[in-house]
C-alpha cells in the first residue's frame, strides 16, 4: 500500500524557465547531486567492512534539498543540520576528505573524531552546527540568526529539520521567537514521512506541515523536494526576504528516503512501509528526473554524465584512501577542549 504519494509535477513546465539560468549553473546542480549520490553509495558499499565505526544516515533520495538549498547560499551564510548531515555538509562546501576521516574516527576528521557521521561541522564553510537530538539545532540556529540581526551582519541562517522535529516543542518555540523578532532565518523542513520507522499519520493529525508553520506568523511554502530547481527558487526567495529584513520563512519539502533511517540498505522489507512506496518515489528520483530534464534540453548526454561520474568516483576513492591512511587520535586528544580558554 502506498501511504504517502508523490504529489509533485516534476519538471513539467520548467523548460520555459531554462533561459533564466546559465547552463554551467544548471550542470553544477546536477554534478553536486550526482556527487552526493556516488559518495553515499560508496559509503554504503563499504559500510559492512566496519572501518567506519560510526552510525550513518544516508541521504540517498534526498539530494535535491541539500543541493538546491545550498545553491542559494553564500559561504558566509550559515547552515545548521540534524543527524542526517552528509548531504548538507557536502552541498555547503565541506571537505570530503575531512568528512570521511570523521567517519573513520581519525584525528584529522572535520571535528577531530568527536562527531562521527551525525555531527559533521565545518565553520570555515558555514556548516555551523549539527545535532543528533531531533529539533535540537533548531533553536540554536535561531540564536545564530538573532546574533546576525543584533550585530548587523548580513549572513542568513538556514536550518534543516525533519517532519518529526515539528512535533518537538523546541521548534514551536523557535518559530515563535523568529517571527516575533523577524529574524533572518530559513526553516527548511524535509518531510520524508517517517521518523525512523514511525509513519507521519501515527504522529501528526491530518494537516499540512507548512500550513501549521504559517500559523506562527511567517511566510510558509510547500516545495517539491525532488525538483532541485524548485528548491533553489524557493530558497532564493526566502534568503532574499531574510536579507532585506523581511524575517523568517518556513519551507516544507516532501522527499523520500530510499534507504533505512540508519545504516546501509533499505529496511522497507521489515514491513513498516511498503516497498512499492519506495519504488514509486524512485521513479521520481531527484538525480534521474533532473538528468532527464537537462538531457531533453540538450545540456547533457549519457557520455558527459559518465565522464562526470568517473571524476567523482576518482575523487571519492582518493578521499577513502586518504581517510584509511590517516592517523588515529591518541589518548591525549581525549582531554582537550572540554572548556574553552
Amino acid at each position: 500500500m502506498i501511504r504517502y504519494d508523490y504529489h509533485g509535477t516534476g519538471f513539467a513546465g520548467w523548460q520555459e524557465k531554462l533561459n533564466h539560468y546559465e547552463p554551467a549553473f544548471l550542470l553544477k546542480l546536477f554534478r553536486d547531486m550526482l556527487r552526493i549520490r556516488i559518495i553515499e553509495e560508496e559509503i554504503e558499499r563499504r559500510y559492512w567492512q566496519d572501518h567506519m565505526k560510526s552510525p550513518i544516515h544516508l541521504v540517498i533520495g534526498q539530494e535535491a534539498t541539500s543541493v538546491g538549498a545550498c545553491a542559494a547560499l553564500t559561504r558566509a551564510d550559515l547552515l545548521y543540520a540534524s543527524h542526517r548531515t552528509h548531504g548538507n555538509y557536502l552541498a555547503k562546501g565541506g571537505d570530503l576528505k575531512a568528512m570521511l576521516c570523521e567517519m573513520h574516527c581519525r584525528i584529522n576528521g572535520c571535528v577531530g573524531s568527536r562527531g562521527g557521521s551525525m555531527h559533521l561541522m565545518d565553520k570555515s564553510v558555514g556548516m555551523a552546527g549539527s545535532s543528533a537530538i531531533v529539533a535540537g539545532v533548531v533553536p540554536i540556529a535561531t540564536g545564530a540568526a538573532f546574533a546576525a540581526q543584533m550585530q548587523d551582519e548580513s549572513y542568513v541562517t538556514t536550518v534543516f529539520l525533519g517532519d518529526a522535529a515539528t512535533e518537538e516543542g523546541a521548534v514551536s518555540e523557535a518559530l515563535n521567537f523568529a517571527a516575533l523578532k523577524q529574524l533572518p532565518i530559513v526553516y527548511f523542513c524535509e518531510n520524508n514521512f517517517y521518523s525512523v520507522q514511525s509513519p507521519l499519520h501515527t504522529r501528526q493529525p491530518q494537516r499540512e506541515i507548512y500550513k501549521w508553520a504559517a500559523s506562527y506568523g511567517m511566510p510558509s511554502v510547500l516545495v517539491d523536494g525532488t525538483n532541485v530547481l524548485a528548491v533553489y527558487e524557493a530558497m532564493q526567495a526566502a534568503v532574499a526576504r531574510a536579507k532585506q529584513g523581511g524575517g523568517p520563512t518556513f519551507i516544507e519539502s516532501p522527499v523520500y528516503r530510499f534507504r533505512a533511517h540508519g545504516g546501509a540498505g533499505d529496511d522497507s522489507k521489515t514491513g513498516y512501509r511498503d516497498i512499492a512506496e519506495r519504488e514509486a518515489w524512485q521513479k521520481v528520483c531527484p538525480v534521474e528526473t533532473y538528468f532527464a530534464f537537462l538531457k531533453s534540453a540538450g545540456l547533457i548526454d549519457e557520455q558527459a554524465r559518465k565522464v562526470m561520474a568517473g571524476e567523482i568516483m576518482a575523487e571519492t576513492m582518493e578521499a577513502f584512501d586518504f581517510a584509511l591512511a590517516s592517523p588515529n587520535p591518541t589518548e591525549a586528544d581525549l582531554y582537550t577542549h572540554v572548556y574553552a580558554d
Binding site: 550559515l78 545548521y80 555551523a128 552546527g129 535540537g136 533548531v138 533553536p139 540554536i140 540556529a141 535561531t142 540564536g143 545564530a144 540568526a145 538573532f146 546574533a147 546576525a148 543584533m150 550585530q151 516543542g169 523546541a170 514551536s172 518555540e173 523557535a174 515563535n176 521567537f177 516575533l180
Partner: peptide, 20 residues
C-alpha cells in the same frame, strides 16, 4: 522573553556560538 525555556536556552547557545 517568551515562556520558552528550551527554545530560549537554545537561542542563547546559537547566539553565543556566533559572537554574542
Amino acid at each position: 522573553s517568551p515562556l520558552s525555556e528550551e527554545g530560549m536556552m537554545g537561542m542563547s547557545v546559537g547566539a553565543a556560538m556566533n559572537g554574542l
